[in-house]
């Protein structure tokens, strides 16, 4: 068949759990590759638990996002799975008017500034991002 994912695409070369050292591990591999993946996962589960959306709605939106990524011709080798979760979550929060994208951008800038304003080794708090650098 003429799909882009023909026989030339191999499962070999996809990052295997053993290569991702030093990360949270269940008995047979790391659950999340990066801490932010765990955060996104937990936020989605928690918002679902609070009733913001049904799980069927979530899987439908996630499927749509994954199909879009495939249409764009991206490799999508599983290591970007939680990026798809993040994008799906963002779009859903905008759709449902929970927040606006401009707010997210502003808060991301504040967080970045908070890091820059915090001495190395000290905990970083969002409020530190409101002071401009000296």
């Amino acid at each position: 068949m003429g799909t882009p994912t023909g026989a030339a695409v191999s499962l070999q070369g996809i990052p295997q759990p053993a290569e991702l050292a030093g990360l949270p591990v269940d008995t047979e591999g790391p659950v999340f590759a990066k801490p932010w993946e765990a955060q996104v996962f937990a936020i989605v589960i928690e918002l679902h638990r609070q009733g913001l959306f049904s799980w069927a709605e979530w899987t439908e939106r996630l499927s749509t996002q994954i199909a879009l990524v495939r249409e764009r011709g991206e490799a999508d080798l599983g290591d970007t799975y939680y990026q798809h979760w993040l994008t799906t979550l963002e779009l859903m929060l905008y759709d449902k008017n929970v927040m606006q994208d401009v707010e997210v951008r502003q808060y991301a800038v504040r967080w970045r500034q908070a890091y820059l304003n915090t001495p190395h080794g000290k905990p970083v708090a969002l409020s530190s991002g409101d002071d401009k650098p000296a």
Partner: peptide, 18 residues
């Protein structure tokens, strides 16, 4: 200063804070 994380992580932190 503390080196800020990448854009993805900053976005997740922004979402969570909001």
């Amino acid at each position: 200063h503390t080196e800020p994380p990448g854009d993805l992580e900053l976005k997740v932190k922004a979402l969570e804070s909001l």
